[in-house]
């Protein structure tokens, strides 16, 4: 029976959920009638999801889940969530890493290039530093590993990969990403997975670092 | 066998872990030799925890876990993590809610009053609004519930409660918290739990909203 994901198109947070569902086989459909900025402000929606944020998820038995990492957890399977509590803890660690160490820096650096917000040189330089640190941490961890937790793909890989999409797509040119070969190799493996391609399509790593265009 | 938590004293993120351990019975000791700003910059520490951040955790079998929510997951038990994948998803949702909806606003509002960072009037007003929204969401959810997920305390309650500590301690005076009686009731239940008291001691809700003192 259908499970519904409320989101707007090209939402990298929703990509995490849709990729997880590709691996687990969970039936998740996005509601074509959903209009971001309208539907999520209606009393019916707010009654289910008081914060009015997306992605938002309604399970087949009517349970409403907010926060993208939680929705991933709900549509995943045991393999994706981690085989043991300790593996699950590592999965939670990398999901938090994506939200705490990658996302703020990624948005600070990329959003001005997308025309979404104004550019601030100091913030952007700091964001580049933080992206380097996060990639360095990933790169070290992936020196001896194919995937982030255990031997198979988990929500850790799905979450970190989807949170890196904007960076690899818009600003991580060959020069910037050169020191992080293990991370690049892992990211390339991820975006070439059929289950990932089915959701995000063909992702091309950027050749030229996008700049803010005043 | 001992499991070690590296942190500085009075770290609310570490409180989450220590409270979870109180409930699960996990043996977790904080390393008395740890000096924040020194130990976490040594090569030995960075080799285990490349980001150099705390809290950081080393399990009895030598597994190193970073990010506080992940450490909570590792020291918890099945009851705290959630009985089913769907309950676990709800637990992950509230842990994310604490990090995404409460923490930014709490730091922005309270840290200037604690002398941790400079005051900005606009940011503080926005933070107050965000705190109201988060408390409203909690209050609605707790109208018909004793705890956040299921019938017993889980990591959802532990995480949200510890992330609210600064707010209830410094700025949520009787006037501000008046509209959120269900949330106040739940918070009072939580801080009076022996397992919570054992970690945070006696917490007194603030009488007078702390102000930034230039």
């Amino acid at each position: 029976s259908p499970q519904t994901l409320y989101t707007y198109p090209e939402n990298f947070r929703a990509f995490k959920v849709l990729v997880a569902a590709q691996y687990s086989g969970a039936k998740v459909t996005t509601d074509p009638a959903f209009v971001f900025g309208d539907t999520n402000k209606t009393p019916a929606f707010l009654n289910k999801f008081p914060l009015g944020k997306v992605p938002a998820f309604e399970s087949s038995d009517g349970r409403c889940i907010f926060e993208s990492n939680a929705i991933c957890w709900a549509v995943a399977n045991d393999e994706l969530r981690g085989a043991s509590p300790m593996d699950q803890a590592q999965v939670v660690a990398w999901m938090s890493f994506a939200d705490n160490e990658i996302l703020p820096a990624s948005c600070t650096w990329v959003f001005p290039c997308m025309g979404i917000m104004s550019f601030n040189k100091g913030n952007t330089e700091r964001a580049k530093e933080d992206v380097r640190k996060a990639l360095q941490c990933l790169n070290t961890h992936l020196l001896t590993r194919t995937f982030l937790v255990g031997e198979r793909i988990t929500l850790a890989d799905v979450s970190v990969c989807c949170t890196l999409l904007h960076l690899y797509q818009y600003v991580l040119d060959a020069g910037f990403r050169k020191p992080f070969q293990n991370a690049n190799r892992w990211f390339t493996t991820m975006i070439n997975q059929p289950q990932v391609k089915a959701v995000i399509g063909d992702l091309k790593m950027c050749d030229k670092m996008a700049q803010f265009d005043p | 066998s001992p499991q070690t938590l590296y942190t500085y004293p009075e770290n609310f993120r570490a409180f989450k872990v220590l409270v979870a351990a109180q409930y699960s019975g996990a043996k977790v000791t904080t390393d008395p030799a740890f000096v924040f700003g020194d130990t976490n910059k040594t090569p030995a520490f960075l080799n285990k925890f490349p980001l150099g951040k705390v809290p950081a955790f080393e399990s009895s079998d030598g597994r190193c876990i970073f990010e506080s929510n992940a450490i909570c997951w590792a020291v918890a038990n099945d009851e705290l993590r959630g009985a089913s994948p769907m309950d676990q998803a709800q637990v992950v949702a509230w842990m994310s809610f604490a990090d995404n909806e409460i923490l930014p606003a709490s730091c922005t509002w309270v840290f200037p009053c604690m002398g941790i960072m400079s005051f900005n009037k606009g940011n503080t007003e926005r933070a107050k609004e965000d705190v109201r929204k988060a408390l409203q969401c909690l209050n609605t959810h707790l109208l018909t519930r004793t705890f956040l997920v299921g019938e017993r305390i889980t990591l959802a309650d532990v995480s949200v409660c510890c992330t609210l500590l600064h707010l209830y301690q410094y700025v949520l005076d009787a006037g501000f918290r008046k509209p959120f009686q269900n949330a106040n009731r739940w918070f009072t239940t939580m801080i009076n739990q022996p397992q919570v008291k054992a970690v945070i001691g006696d917490l007194k809700m603030c009488d007078k909203m702390a102000q930034f003192d230039p």
């Binding site: 090209e10 971001f36 703020p104 964001a127 | 700003g37 840290f111 940011n123």
Partner: peptide
Amino acid sequence: MALELAHETIWFDKWRVDDAERQFYENK
């Protein structure tokens, strides 16, 4: 997509707050 992304709540100041918190507790 850009329009919707503009509504995302991102903690852009997180690095500022993290730095301040770290310095405060290092000095403590």
